[in-house]
Amino acid sequence: MEATEWELAVTHTTHLFMWIAGLVVVAVLIGAFIWGRRVQARESRRPTPEEQPKLPPDGPVREIREYRDADEVPHDGGWLTPHELKEGYGTSSTHPSPSQDEADHRKGRNSSFGGGGLG
């Protein structure tokens, strides 16, 4: 065989390999689609809007809306150790604010980063 014949044979083999690879990819995609439809058919049906859970007429249960202030941080320059923190799991470092008026808690918080300054 001459060089041109080898080049033609390699080109035809490459084209044949590409066609076979393309057909394999298409077959895998079709198989995945069919498998997905079978899995979906085995799942329970979706609930209708009438079957969805509804909110109680008096609102969410156990919801408390209140404004809270952060506890003071000691300014003596010392460190707080774990035994000096508040007791109990889930306790926060906040307490209910004396004023529950929304206007008192909104002032100075409408700028970027909540600073409220001119800069």
Rank of each mutant, 00 (worst) to 15 (best):
V24S: 15
V25E: 14
V25K: 03
V25P: 06
V26P: 03
V26H: 11
A27H: 13
A27R: 12
V28P: 12
V28D: 12
L29A: 15
L29T: 12
L29M: 14
L29C: 15
I30Y: 07
I30N: 05
I30F: 06
I30W: 03
G31E: 09
G31P: 05
A32C: 11
A32E: 10
A32S: 12
A32V: 06
F33P: 01
F33I: 08
F33A: 10
I34W: 03
I34V: 11
W35C: 00
G36L: 04
G36I: 00
R37N: 05
R37E: 13
R37A: 06
R37F: 09
R38A: 08
V39H: 13
Q40A: 14
A41I: 08
A41W: 05
A41G: 01
A41N: 10
R42I: 14
R42W: 14
S44V: 15
R45D: 11
R45E: 08
R46E: 14
R46I: 11
R46L: 15
P47C: 03
P47G: 07
P47Q: 07
P47K: 02
T48H: 03
E50A: 10
E51M: 07
Q52L: 12
P53L: 07
P53E: 10
P53Q: 10
K54R: 11
K54G: 01
L55N: 01
P56E: 04
P56H: 05
P56W: 01
P56A: 12
P57G: 03
P57W: 00
D58P: 06
D58R: 12
D58L: 12
G59M: 09
G59Y: 02
P60W: 04
P60K: 08
P60Y: 06
V61R: 05
V61C: 04
R62K: 15
E63K: 15
E63M: 10
I64D: 01
I64L: 08
R65C: 12
R65Q: 14
E66T: 08
Y67Q: 02
R68A: 05
R68N: 07
A70Y: 09
A70P: 02
D71E: 13
D71V: 06
E72K: 06
P74G: 04
P74Y: 03
H75S: 13
G77R: 01
G77C: 01
G77N: 00
G77S: 00
